[in-house]
Design a protein around this nucleic acid. Sequence first.
DNA 1: GGTCTAGGTGGGATATTGTGGGAGATATCG
DNA 2: CGATATCTCCCACAATATCCCACCTAGACC
Lengths: 144, 144
Amino acid sequence: MLIGHFIHQLDDKKRISIPSKWRSLLGKKVVVTSGLDKSLFVFSLKEWQKIAEKLSSLSFTNKDTRSFTRFMLSNAFDTDLDSVGRILITDQLKKFADINKKAVLVGMHSRVEIWSEEEWEKYSNANNKSADSVAGKLSEIGVL
Amino acid sequence: MLIGHFIHQLDDKKRISIPSKWRSLLGKKVVVTSGLDKSLFVFSLKEWQKIAEKLSSLSFTNKDTRSFTRFMLSNAFDTDLDSVGRILITDQLKKFADINKKAVLVGMHSRVEIWSEEEWEKYSNANNKSADSVAGKLSEIGVL
DNA sequence: GGTCTAGGTGGGATATTGTGGGAGATATCG
DNA sequence: CGATATCTCCCACAATATCCCACCTAGACC
């Protein structure tokens, strides 16, 4: 299970290290694509295949699903981890997520999200959860 | 059942001892995450998996639950107990709970909470004073 | 009261990880 | 077709995490 978050550098060769903890879970080949909220999604090849299948099963007549499918597929990029566990980020994706140098890698169960540091800070501050709302959600899912 | 509380040191290598009493209940692998009121939650792997499953089952189209899931997962950290029963606390979590050196480990049924000593004092003092009102609540829910 | 044991704490040595850069291979363009 | 830019693979280094062992204190037991 992919959890936690790490701050890594995107170097001038547009490489970024996948935290070593996650490498065994992701495998050697991954797919990077544009995600929600100005972040990139990284899937293991296996997870990606599941998603691709789901996307292809969506109705083509619905305008929304058609555009969502295009959004996911057109920006998808498959890349291998190099010998020390880094992946490549294309210019388009770099630009999409507005990543300059520092990036935040976030573990989200079965996928990894990549954010620019600034966007991540903004996002997590903006969603500055009051203790009450967190407590409420926690009790909803049966933790408290 | 995890009950009672212990005061242990968080050393410079960001390790903290789990009370030996609790080790058999928690198992070798645990997950630490940000909790409520400036405290950290420690779950056994089993308990955590239940939570993670619930989280992943939440609808991802809802912006609120998405941010809640990110909050829970991005601050989570899975760690093994070392040969003498200590776990690691990441810088992020250390900062979140404002733990410097002395920390209080509190048994809360199925999870452990970790507080900085100062926060714990503050919190428990405030609570002791209102013991009467707590007693009232307990009778409301049929405990006493 | 002394000895023994278990649990908590600290520190050193080694392995791992993240990051940068070079050289050869490949593609691009005039 | 040659020159130049880009990409890919490989190696090197510094920082840090991980593993292991040793100490120390407090309580138990004789």
